[in-house]
Design a protein around this nucleic acid. Structure first.
Length: 639
DNA sequence: GAGTTTGAAACT
DNA sequence: CAGTTTCAAACTC
């Protein structure tokens, strides 16, 4: 960055990449910086995202998007913006490490750390960021840096706090969630390697922390890149598994939620899905976690539901999971018990060497881990080269092969205040299914599995997808709703059976807005309407979808770690990802235009550009997604 | 836990 | 691009 050589240059190097592709982005400030530096385009969005998360005012969020749109349309202006916003990079600049360090040294007490920076500071900073124009003006001044410090430190603090507080796992998880990332050159903020993570390391880290050592140092030591230690946390491979970011988020959220729940005493929650193996051990961690988000507790809980949902579908990073799972069967059983089978990726591959999309781990962009029962597995850090090569090959065939299968579309353009949705699901399977016998009522069906309705892209036969039929006739809605007629009892049973409706749903039933058969669509709406409202409970499966989106956005924009410890930002993030996005899309996209742009029967996925097409000022929603996608392909490591 | 079914992924 | 094979998850018993 021309304008900020001294600061940015130092830390940006490759950290960017790692972080960008890591689910962590959302969690750590570093990511932000990284992302920004990585892609000039990402800067604004990134910043905005950050601000968004920090903002409680939804209006501001919208403004942010608007800004983004504006920027987008301007196009050429990006670069100038970059330079202008170079200061933003400070968030993650190496210099922050100092602050970070200082914070840690000051106190290991998360609460203290958190307290050091008021939400106001964060918001203020965020707002500043949000308003790019304003920011420009600021950047021109010498004092802009100072102004940003609050944010910066806040981020750092959050990270530290998160790390220090019982949420170490969370922190690490976040860090490590970058499934395959580049080897970090930077000693700062480098991503932890998710699956490589083991508790020894965790323990060591804890010790280090306890000993007052800086997070950075410990991290650095652990993250020595390139060491072919399959069990070490350095299993990151470049650009892989971006969509897992969502998972990471989900898992984190999940944990957070749990924490919240615990604190409230209602835990036993009712979030069966949350009890997935993944979250199991996290409790301990969280128990110690200070209730920094006390004020938002209710929200957090509420969010927790959402998160839980999310987690159920995607999370795969909890350390616990790695401990508890010994055999595929067990894993599966646990998963099943948890209500979701996708939470923690584990495979049982025997012939694919875990180098094909057959392998869930590989497909998810993560290394196989101990709980996997795969044979002749090559999806391990020691085979990083092979993994990357294979991945590249697959991506060459299908650029979105590792993208989330279920993506958010602009289909739903529900109007706030609308009653139940009559519009198509807000998320769709990107390719559509091809079911012949399952009637799209079982998890064989990717659409169903993803909790989304079938679409015109599907080639399924006899579609009875409870989330929405191919013909668009049957989107599951609340009991007694129109969509129900389409769904016969058997279907419902199937649905319930497959997804094991959590108690939470029952709770939701009490809430008209989120009544039972929560379908992506259905829930989506409430979310849109009440992004931050405690009443809006995310659709159980939809969340996953949201996560995916979040993933994109999160990666691209980076999820601020600021609030992570408290879930505050996280919540915002979630909300934004799932709720705000739709609105954004709403603005520009017309219903039914979403992903359906691709040929209905086309098996091949259209490239991001096509699918997400970015029309200046045209489809902000899509644009948003689009931007996020680019990060994925970061297959080419910047070593 | 073994065996079957299913549909995506991979291959031809 | 269609048809076939391979694969591993999902499912059943």
């Amino acid at each position: 960055m021309p304008n900020e050589p001294s600061r940015i240059a130092i830390g940006l190097p490759q950290t960017l990449k790692y972080d960008c592709s890591s689910p962590d982005c959302d969690a750590t400030p570093v990511i932000k910086t990284t992302c920004v530096s990585d892609t000039s385009l990402a800067i604004v969005p990134f910043v905005q995202e950050t601000s968004e998360k920090g903002l409680s005012d939804r209006v501001e969020i919208r403004d942010t998007f608007q800004v983004e749109q504006k920027r987008d349309t301007i196009g050429s202006e990006w670069e100038s913006l970059i330079s202008d916003t170079s200061d933003l990079l400070i968030f993650n600049s190496p210099n922050d490490s100092e602050a970070f360090r200082g914070v840690i040294q000051k106190s290991l007490d998360p609460s203290v750390l958190i307290s050091q920076f008021s939400q106001d500071d964060i918001n203020e900073a965020c707002q500043t960021t949000v308003d790019l124009d304003k920011y420009k003006d600021q950047t021109e001044g010498a004092g802009d840096m100072n102004e940003m410090n609050p944010v910066n430190e806040s981020f750092e603090v959050a990270s530290v706090t998160n790390f220090i507080s019982g949420s170490l796992t969370d922190y690490m998880e976040t860090r490590m969630s970058a499934p395959y990332s580049f080897k970090p050159d930077s000693n700062l903020h480098r991503g932890f390697r998710r699956r490589c993570l083991d508790f020894e390391m965790l323990a060591a880290r804890r010790k280090n922390l306890d000993g007052g050592s800086t997070t950075n140092s410990s991290t650095d030591n652990k993250l020595v890149p390139g060491k072919p230690d399959s069990d070490s946390p350095r299993c990151i491979v470049p650009g892989i598994g971006l969509h897992l970011n969502a998972l990471a988020i989900a898992s984190r959220d999940n944990k957070n939620m749990k924490l919240e729940t615990l604190s409230s005493g209602t835990q036993k929650l009712s979030f069966p899905s949350l009890n997935s193996p993944c979250t199991g051990g996290a409790e301990t961690t969280y128990e110690s976690l200070p209730s920094a988000s006390t004020e938002r507790e209710s929200d957090a809980v509420e969010n927790g539901v959402q998160l839980a949902e999310d987690a159920s579908q995607a999370s795969a990073y909890l350390v616990n999971e790695e401990f508890n799972q010994n055999s595929p069967k067990k894993k599966r059983r646990r998963l099943e018990q948890a209500g979701e089978g996708e939470s923690c990726k584990r495979c049982n591959c025997k012939k694919s060497k875990c180098l094909k999309l057959y392998c869930e781990c590989f497909a998810a962009g993560v290394y196989c881990i101990e709980p996997c029962s795969c044979q002749d597995c090559f999806n391990k850090p020691i085979h990083e080269d092979t993994v990357l090569a294979t991945r590249k090959q697959i991506e060459s065939r299908n650029p979105l092969a590792f993208a989330p299968k279920v993506i958010r579309t602009s289909d739903s353009v529900p109007e706030v205040g609308d009653d139940l949705i009559t519009t198509p699901a807000s998320a769709r399977h990107k390719r559509g299914c091809n079911c012949k016998k399952s009637n799209c009522l079982k998890k064989y069906c990717e659409c169903f599995q993803g909790g989304v309705g079938c679409s015109i892209n599907c080639r399924c036969e006899g579609c009875k997808n409870a989330f929405g039929r191919k013909d668009g006739s049957a989107i599951m809605e609340t009991d007694g709703e129109p969509g129900e007629e389409e769904t016969d009892p058997s279907e419902k049973n199937a649905l319930d059976k497959n997804f094991e409706k959590p108690d939470i749903l029952n709770n939701e039933e009490q809430n008209p807005a989120s009544a039972l058969p929560t379908t992506p669509l259905q829930l989506c709406r409430p979310l849109v309407q009440l992004p931050f409202s405690s009443k809006s409970k995310p659709p159980r499966f939809f969340i996953a979808i949201g996560s995916s989106s979040a993933l994109y956005t999160g990666q691209r924009y980076g999820k601020p770690s600021i609030i992570q410890p408290q879930n505050i930002i996280e919540k915002h993030f979630q909300t934004i990802a799932e709720d705000e996005t739709p609105e954004i899309l709403r603005g520009n996209s017309s219903p039914g235009t979403g992903i359906k742009t691709s040929s209905p029967n086309s098996k091949r996925i259209s490239p991001p550009q096509c699918e997400l097409g970015s029309t200046p000022g045209g489809r902000s929603g899509r644009k948003l997604i689009l931007q996020s996608i680019p990060s994925f392909p970061s297959l080419t490591p910047k070593h």
